[in-house]
Structure formats: C-alpha cells, structure tokens
C-alpha cells in the first residue's frame, strides 16, 4: 500500500501521457492542458506545505532552546506578517491575476521594503564572491584553464564600450581580431557547440530517467523505511 500504490500510479499516469501523444482524438489532446492546471494547483499546495514545514522546523528549534532562537522568532514574525497582510489583502485587494502592484497595498510595501532589496542584495554579493573565486581559479595553469580564461575575458570585454574601443583602431582586414567580432563568433559557434552537446546530454538523461521512473526502476523518491 505504502510503496506499491505510488509505483502503480506513476506507471499508469506516465504511460497515459506518453500514449496521449499518439492518440489525437478526445479526450487525449485536451488532457495535457487540464492536467497542467492540476499541476499548477499542486505546486500551490507545495508552497503551502513549504510554509507549514518552515513553521514546524522553526518552532521545533525554538522549543529546544536553539542558540539562534531570537533570529528564528524573526523568521516566524516575517512569515506570519507577510501571510496575514497577503491573505487579508490589507490596504486593498490583490488583483485576480495576483498583481499586487496597486499603490497602497501593504503586500507591495513589504515586497518593496524587504523582499526585493534582500533578494537583489544577496544575489549582488555573489559578484564579490565570483570575483574572488575567479582571482584564485583563473590562472592560466594549463591549456583548458587558458581557453576558459580567454573566453570569459572576451565575453566580459565584448559587452562593454571599453572592449569595443580597445580594438577599434585595427584595420578592416584584421576584423577577425576585433573584440566585438570575436565576442559574437565565440557566442555563436564554439559556445553553441558546447551548450548543444550539454543540452543533448541533459535530454538523454531526462528521457532515460523518465523511463526509469515510469517502469519503477528508480524509486529513490519513495524515501527510506522511516518515511
């Protein structure tokens, strides 16, 4: 019951959606659209589950006297504050499509004051870490590292006015040495070749993993005995 039923469900649902491609008569063509909506609804439930799990884990740590319990309270206050403001639609209603850009909406104020600045600041601090990592890793120690370094350097320079002006003095017959030309060609040819090979590999991986899941070979999602 606990392990066999999920395997049967996956086999039936997976096979049904593979077969739906080969059966172009009702209800099969419309089925994918309807189930996509179910999928979105279930994603919504997954967010609710994530919120519930956050409360459970945080409350558990506070109860056990975690040294960071003050900050855990901050998490809970932030969570419930945003939840109440969003669900009760304080300051005005959120539009049906979820548009919360209306002036005066508290949900938008918290978004503008806390969510957006924190997210942008966290991601922008990565600029420092990426730079420091690059300083240590980007040494032309061997041929591969040199190629990586040159490609990254050309891409970075190719997008800036400095890159354009550095090689602008070159005559037209040496056009292939100009950074904008190199930038464009590196992106369009060797970069596309590498990305394409990776994409083909990913596609093969997803196809084989999908088959493994449908046929019940891959069962790690069922978890261990305890879960």
């Amino acid at each position: 019951m606990k392990k066999r039923v999920p395997l049967i469900i996956i086999f039936c649902v997976g096979t049904l959606f593979v077969l739906a491609i080969f059966l172009p008569f009702p209800p099969f063509p419309a089925m994918e659209g309807e189930v996509s909506v179910w999928f979105d609804i279930l994603k919504g439930f997954a967010f609710v589950l994530g919120g519930g799990n956050l409360i459970r884990v945080t409350a558990d740590k506070i109860r056990k006297g975690h040294p960071d319990r003050f900050y855990l309270w901050v998490t809970l206050v932030g969570f419930f504050g945003m939840l109440v403001v969003g669900l009760l639609q304080l300051g005005g209603p959120i539009a049906p499509g979820g548009d919360f850009t209306t002036e005066g909406l508290w949900f938008r104020r918290i978004y503008d004051g806390i969510f957006a600045p924190c997210m942008a600041a966290i991601f922008s601090t990565l600029a420092f870490f990426v730079s420091s990592a690059a300083y240590r890793a980007f040494r032309a120690k061997n041929r591969e590292a040199t190629i990586l370094l040159i490609a990254a350097f050309v891409i970075l320079l190719g997008r800036t006015p400095l890159g354009n002006s550095l090689t602008a003095w070159l005559p037209d017959f040496l056009n292939f040495l100009k950074i904008p030309w190199l930038f464009e060609k590196i992106l369009m040819y060797p970069n596309t070749a590498g990305q394409r090979a990776i994409l083909i590999g990913i596609a093969l991986g997803i196809i084989s993993n999908s088959l493994r899941l449908i046929l019940g070979v891959e069962r790690s999602y069922l978890g261990g005995e305890r879960s």
Binding site: G50, L54, L83, G86, I94, I114
Partner: peptide, 19 residues
C-alpha cells in the same frame, strides 16, 4: 532570517492568489 520568513509567505500568498 527575516528574508527567509517573508519570502516563504510571499510565494505561498502568490500561489494561493494566482493559482
């Protein structure tokens, strides 16, 4: 920690309101 709490609730409210 404030960001963790606010973002979890943000996505939850968005999912409830939009989907």
């Amino acid at each position: 920690h404030l960001f963790v709490g606010v973002s979890a609730a943000f996505w939850m409210v968005k999912a409830i309101q939009t989907t």
